[in-house]
């Protein structure tokens, strides 16, 4: 075992990390929180010259319990549903003051798909130069796992329970990216914490644009999804490899790039990892039908976006930059 240096020297080392750590240690996120990871990755790419407006939600709560803050950037939390508007105001102020500081808006799926959607749509329509990042953990986790417009079909939540009459969420996950892209804004994308290089490059790309940009980051929640904390990244990789959460880039509403599926996995591999889908694993006709249904949704995505490109064993078909394969020495991850 390594000998522990003094905490003072660790703190010094922490200050010297060769990356911008916008969200620092000491925050109170659950073990294995996907959102905490995603937020840091976004800021890593964005750098320090930003202002963050953050919606009410887990990210806000676990990072800003007074008097402690985990943020290294200027950061404001106002309300659940007004993040896009607060960010619009900040951006207007930056324009008024002639500053180049970039504005980021952070919100969860509740604050984006549902309650904050109006403000978001307004922001996009007015084309404020704001990068809006939705950390999508597919339910209202902050209040204890209630279904949202983003909760996938069939998933258990406390308000889409499993009983003799209902079997998890009845409705489909809102196709937010299509709605967002209908604003014909410069850039919109999806990303996943399982592909950090891809996420960071998308953040950089988005910040290179003038006007509104949007990134939907799939962010597993061990508590709400019912999976082991160590599996957060693994599960997100499965979400992508099954086709359930396609990784896309859109330019003014047109899909311009997709991340090809590295190794196609059946949706059952994804379902099996999470308690929220446990009822789908039963040996019953209805469970089988739901499993088939989810598989069909995956297949639909794969077909719709062309996620399978060429034979799986052809290494050249993959965009290795975005697939996040490791390299010795880690330079590519810096």
């Amino acid at each position: 075992m390594e000998e522990l240096p003094l905490s003072a020297s660790l703190n010094l080392l922490r200050e010297q990390q060769p990356r911008f750590t916008g969200l620092e240690a000491g925050h109170r996120a659950c073990q294995g929180c996907g959102q905490a990871l995603a937020a840091r990755l976004v800021l890593e790419a964005a750098g320090p010259d930003v202002i963050v407006a953050n919606a009410t939600g887990c990210l806000e709560i676990f990072s800003s319990a007074w008097p402690e803050s985990a943020w290294r950037t200027p950061w404001i939390h106002s309300l659940f549903e007004n993040t896009a508007a607060v960010a619009s105001g900040i951006e207007a102020a930056m324009r008024a003051q002639g500053k180049s500081t970039r504005v980021l808006a952070f919100a969860g799926d509740g604050g984006t798909f549902d309650i904050g959607f109006q403000a978001l749509s307004g922001m996009l329509e007015r084309n404020h130069s704001v990068l809006y990042v939705c950390f999508d953990n597919e339910a209202y986790m902050n209040t204890g796992v209630q279904r949202s417009g983003s909760t996938p079909h069939g998933a258990w939540t406390t308000t889409s329970p499993v009983g003799s009459k209902t079997r998890g969420k009845r409705h489909y996950k809102k196709d937010l990216l299509s709605i967002i892209s209908a604003h014909r804004m410069p850039y919109a994308a999806t990303a996943s914490i399982a592909y950090p290089s891809d996420l960071r490059s998308k953040v950089r790309k988005a910040l290179g644009e003038e006007g509104s940009t949007f990134i939907l980051v799939h962010s597993p929640c061990p508590l709400g999804w019912g999976h082991e904390s160590r599996l957060s990244v693994e599960i997100d990789r499965l979400a992508v490899e099954t086709g359930l959460f396609p990784i896309l880039e859109m330019d003014r509403g047109n899909v311009i790039n997709v991340m090809p599926i590295r190794k196609k996995r059946p949706v059952i591999d994804y379902i099996r990892t999470q308690d929220r889908f446990r009822h789908l694993l039963e040996e019953s006709e209805i469970a089988q039908e739901e499993r088939d249904h989810l598989q069909a949704l995956c297949d639909f995505n794969i077909e719709r976006y062309g996620l399978m490109v060429g034979p799986e064993d052809d290494p050249s078909r993959l965009d290795t930059q975005s697939a996040d394969t490791v390299t010795r020495g880690g330079e590519r991850w810096a």
Partner: peptide, 21 residues
């Protein structure tokens, strides 16, 4: 900023003032 609701109007000015304008 021609916002889409009073809710956003208040939010925009709050953000703007918070950012020093």
């Amino acid at each position: 900023i021609s916002v889409e609701s009073e809710f956003s109007a208040a939010s925009v000015v709050m953000g703007a003032s918070a950012a020093g304008s």
